[in-house]
Amino acid sequence: MPQVAIKAQGLVKWFGEGEARTDALRNVDLETYFGEMLYIVGPSGSGKTTLLSVLSGVLKPNSGTVLVENVDIWNLDEDGRADFRLNKIGFVFQDFHLFPRLTTAENAAIPLILKKNDWNESLKEANNYLEVVGLKDRAELPPVKLSGGEQQRVAIARAMVSKPDILIMDEPTASLDGDTGNAILAFVHKNVLNPNRCIVVVTHDERIYEFASRILHMADGRLSTEEKTTAEKGAPEKITAEKSVVEKSTPEKSTA
């Protein structure tokens, strides 16, 4: 029996009041497990980003509870929730959000810096993760010198650097071309996912469905119970094929 990572119950979230009110989440229940890569898919405006934000302690729901490793995160105070995010959650955003004036390594080190760890040690650790994502030789460059796929890998290194139990990825491939996006998710599936980690991915991108452990559909603020597993899809060969894409895009030796 897999261990529950996130248990959400009765999540309701709306924006605006009266005429202008939009219901983004209408009574959503959800459980995610360690060791799985859960996909949430659905049409634009169906509430996927809202759900991710509520689950990760970024956006307060109007009602409902979110237990992460049995901690009721919406009962914590502001600082407690900031600490929770810093220590338990890794974020990968659609638009990377890297600081253009920092080096790649400094960008990747940000969660450790925010934890007030020593600067040099944070950079050392960040470099280890840049090596994992195959960007060790780019460590001193500013992110703008990197391709889109490379920037997203920096963002992944940044999300991994604090060894979070839960990784949240909102449309991680939306700013990337198909092949690159596929390679990134293949990489995450192979190198980031582990039995003690839960990865929640929101996406529109059908080309990356093959890496999902489970897929939940979202429509109009509701999660459908319909689930789809990819176990039978024979993904392994595909993953191997994609892995070579990751390796190709990094001239030096890549994955650790």
Binding site: S56, D79, A82, F84, R85, L86, H97, L98, I110, L114
Partner: peptide, 12 residues
Amino acid sequence: RFGALKAIGIKS
């Protein structure tokens, strides 16, 4: 990016 820092978990 400051917003991203807030999401990642910087205290106000």
